[in-house]
Design a protein around this nucleic acid. Structure first.
Lengths: 228, 228
DNA sequence: TTGCAAATTCACAAATTGTTCACCGCAGTA
DNA sequence: TACTGCGGTGAACAATTTGTGAATTTGCAA
């Protein structure tokens, strides 16, 4: 699924140049010529990343950045004129993810865009390591340890377990689990979750009485634990 | 344990910019706005590296550098205004480890800081020598020793192995490895990583049961070890 | 410029995981 | 107890991701 990029830049030449290169990179793009339009596009276009010029008509880059940060964590890369050190500092403090000084090389823009997206994508809030009694879920090494023994576990299963275990005793519907683990753009629902739960149960079977994957009839599943 | 950096710079904007980037690189930072304060910080903060501006209130960069060199070998990078060639020469003669001219790109500062720390031998993020059982990865001589025998290994392969081995058991995606070993401006992704992994495996094959390059299906690779 | 070693790209086979299906069995309700 | 859904399973099938050998392209040194 292609990523959406909002390019906020009043200089038509620059905006189009960037657009051409980014579309070549597989992005779906939209251009906003000024700050106010940018705010509108943010709501309707819902970009995955924003390239934001500082000098803009109507509402400048700082204003736009502040609006974005007030409501979301959408990655923002600021485009600043060379030498505006103050700008860079404020930009990063205000929550920009990176900045690029004009004039720039498209190669650098592309590199930074990808770098920022990778960073944003991998920087999960999910903890790296979950421990319950004799169960250890380590997402940094992608290992599941049950009763002291490592158990090979495919990514989807492990992510599902980690998600459930990150909020013990909380019930999730199948749809919620699909959204969280498979992604909101996942299509198809069938018993996929059931099957993964089943496979997880096989791996966790009889390991402990302090925790278990429990079915909440008519609702969904939960990772139940008595807190050791 | 993170490295400590002392930033001696009276221009608040510059100091903060550097600070933000360096903290992002994992450094613990302290800012000194003038030469005298710098001397005080040197004693109490005990930095692992110093970024030192030449033009400073109270006591200038030369004075600070002289004081540092009188008592320690702490790496120092001088920040000089453009065109002050004389400064550069004197700086290096007076014992600075490197110099950077303003205005600078943060990218360059980061690169030089890492370079100086590597040179200084204070094994920072990338240790010079990694040892696991019968495997020795020596980045200072670029040599790989497996089971007591040296194995000729091309740079990229060795860097890749060193990077993976520097965080044993941690899984890295191909993109993360490309960012770390090839650089964020590297384009093309293909199976490049796979191929390098494969060649490394050929070199490491059957050498030990205590460590291995493991594929984490659907995720990436990791250097797995049981800690001997 | 020539020659070589290293780095990349390519194309496909192989391995592993993810999804779908069909059917069984049990919980909740009168 | 019979009925109605929902959940559990195992197997078959599909989709992805990897592993590899070989062909190309690069980068460097002589």
């Amino acid at each position: 699924m292609p990523k959406k990029m909002l390019i906020v830049e009043d200089d038509e030449n620059i905006a189009e140049l960037v657009e051409i290169y980014m579309q070549r990179e597989g992005f779906t793009t939209t251009i906003s010529p000024d700050g106010e339009d940018a705010l509108k596009q943010l709501r309707v276009f819902r970009p995955d990343i924003v390239l934001l010029d500082v000098m803009l008509p109507k509402l400048d880059g700082w204003g736009v950045l502040a609006e974005i940060r007030a409501t979301s964590k959408t990655p923002v890369i600021m485009l600043t004129a060379k030498g505006e050190l103050g700008d860079r500092v404020s930009g990063l403090q205000a929550g920009a993810d990176d900045y690029i000084t004009k004039p720039f090389e498209m190669k650098e823009v592309i590199a930074r865009v990808h770098a920022v997206l990778r960073r944003a994508g991998s920087a999960e809030s999910a903890p790296e390591r979950l421990v319950f009694d004799n169960l250890i879920i380590d997402m940094s090494s992608f290992e599941l340890t049950v009763g002291g023994k490592k158990v090979d576990t495919p990514p989807k299963e492990l992510e599902l377990l980690a998600y459930l275990a990150s909020s013990p005793n909380r019930v999730y519907t199948r749809d919620q689990l699909l959204d969280a683990v498979w992604g909101i753009d996942y299509f198809g629902d069938n018993r996929t979750v059931d099957v993964h739960i089943k496979r997880l149960r096989e791996k966790l079977e009889g390991a402990s009485e302090h925790w278990q994957l429990k079915t909440v009839w008519g609702v969904g599943y939960k990772f139940e634990t008595d807190g050791d």
